[in-house]
Design a protein around this nucleic acid. Sequence first.
DNA 1: TGCACGATCTCG
DNA 2: GAGATCGTGCAT
Length: 169
Amino acid sequence: MKRLPVEFYKQDAVTVAEKLLGKILVRVWEDGNETRYRITETEAYMGEEDKACHACKGRTLRTEVMYSEGGKVYVYLIYGMYWMLNVVTGEVNDPQAVLIRGIDNIVGSGKVGRLLKMDKSFYAENLSISTRIWIEDAPNVSEFSTASRVGIDYAGEEWKSKLWRFIVT
DNA sequence: TGCACGATCTCG
DNA sequence: GAGATCGTGCAT
């Protein structure tokens, strides 16, 4: 297996979110051991128009990495205790990202962040060259379902109703 | 300089 | 069903 090419991440977030299902997330720990996880649940966030996307507020210190080229990591702290793991997608100045909500049998973006020991140092980590986290190719999964996104009540009906959550079944 | 608010989870 | 817990963004 090999790492996904940069071109993979340059597609739009909805496409990447769907194709990431079944792919292998590799995490190398400080002691040199590595663990591989199968991605089972993702969510897409589509740019400044998407009221549920952090970039809808425009370019800030926190959202800056979403404006860069796809293939980078976007992490941020939520509720003061959970690091959320996202993958930036799309071209430069096209702020999109895919939230990793589930890996293996771990479902819940907060749990994923904790399990992977995510923290601020992973902000803007490049998945193509990083030695501690990357994603490897794997066959697409044939069975998956879609659903509306979670935890974005403030985004309004139009954006809440988008079926941009992808789950391996 | 201060404050309200979350893409959540766990416990009672 | 509520609390934990803190960086970020916007209002003073």
